[in-house]
Simulated assay, not measured.
Amino acid sequence: MELPVVVGVDGSEPSLRAVDWAADEAALRGAPLRLVYASLWERYEGALLAQELDKPLEEVMARDVLGTAEERARRRRPELKVTTDVLPEEPEYGLVRESSTALALVLGCRGRSGMAEALLGSVSLAVAGHAHCPVIVLRGTHDSQARTGLRGRIALGVGEKPAGSAAVRFAVEEAVLRGVPLEAVRAWRCPAHATPHSQRRQALGVLEEALRDVPAELKADRRTVEGHARDALIAVSRESDLLVVGARRRHGPFGLQLSRVAHGVLHHAACPVAVVPEHA
């Protein structure tokens, strides 16, 4: 089964920019593109609105949203195989379910709620926290530039257990596919009983472990930063086309839970953020 790149659409401008980004991502990976519109009220609102407007059902609501998105995707990447579907359920649940059979899931940073641009939509946050595949949330102003990024660099936040990290693999794949350097970032803080030199050296060791299997043809830079990881990654996002962070899966009914670092960059990063589930 050829896994698709899935993008959630809702008719908003951020979701249409997500279509652009997802189309580029699918083209990079040679994958099909799947456009989905999820709404619990679609089954009721669609027929009612069609009656009020005296139009066929397919001209309103989800089909109209999906039709616009499909036209945009085909215009951007005519070579792609594109499919569409309506999910008559809450977006949080429908998109998480879609993630179980997706290569990646792409979302705009906000929907129809009219939230300030600095805030993240509740749907994006919920899906990023529970999805089974990498979720790319489009932050920043250049979020429709998946293939021809403006900064020419992928950034990777390196956590405590980098060995075998899915986030590292995803970041390496993205950098190789785009032909750009990878910058791995590890933040450190100095406790009272330690020295800055020892803490920085330890951070460098973690970076070396994370990048030990990087292909020789990929330029991979190491950056250690003293301070909070969230602040360090937000800063590096201003110089990057994509920021990749891992999220550990915890056993239990709530599935994947986001750390404060992942939560913080999803709210404040200046570029798209990929949250990659780590299956411990």
Rank of each mutant, 00 (worst) to 15 (best):
V106S: 06
A102V: 06
A62M: 01
L66H: 06
L80M: 06
P78S: 11
R76I: 02
L66R: 05
E59F: 09
A62H: 05
P91M: 11
R72P: 01
E89W: 02
T83D: 14
G108W: 00
P78D: 11
G114C: 05
L107G: 10
R110L: 07
G94T: 08
R72F: 03
M115A: 14
R63P: 01
E70L: 08
R110P: 00
A116W: 02
S99D: 13
E98I: 09
E92A: 13
E79S: 15
P91I: 09
R97H: 13
E92K: 14
P78A: 09
K81L: 11
L66V: 07
D64L: 14
G94N: 12
D64K: 14
L95E: 05
G108V: 11
L103P: 01
E58K: 01
D64S: 15
R97K: 14
R74V: 10
G114I: 08
E58R: 14
T68Y: 01
A69Y: 01
M115E: 10
K81Y: 04
A73I: 06
V86L: 13
V60Q: 05
R63C: 02
P91F: 12
L107S: 03
V106Y: 01
P91H: 08
S99G: 09
L80I: 10
E117C: 00
E58V: 09
R77I: 03
P78G: 10
A62Y: 02
K55R: 15
S100G: 12
D85K: 13
T83C: 03
Y93T: 12
L107W: 04
L87R: 12
L57Y: 12
M115F: 12
A104K: 06
R112P: 00
L87C: 04
G94I: 10
L107T: 06
G94Y: 08
E59M: 12
E71S: 13
R112L: 15
E98H: 05
A104E: 11
A102I: 07
E79P: 01
L87V: 15
T84I: 13
E117K: 12
L105W: 08
R76P: 04
R63T: 10
V106F: 01
A73T: 03
E98G: 06
A102D: 11
E59N: 12
Y93M: 07
R72T: 05
P88T: 08
R77K: 09
T101Q: 15
G114K: 09
V82W: 07
E71D: 13
L107V: 07
A104N: 07
R74E: 11
G108F: 03
K81R: 15
L95W: 07
S100R: 15
R75W: 09
V65P: 03
A62C: 07
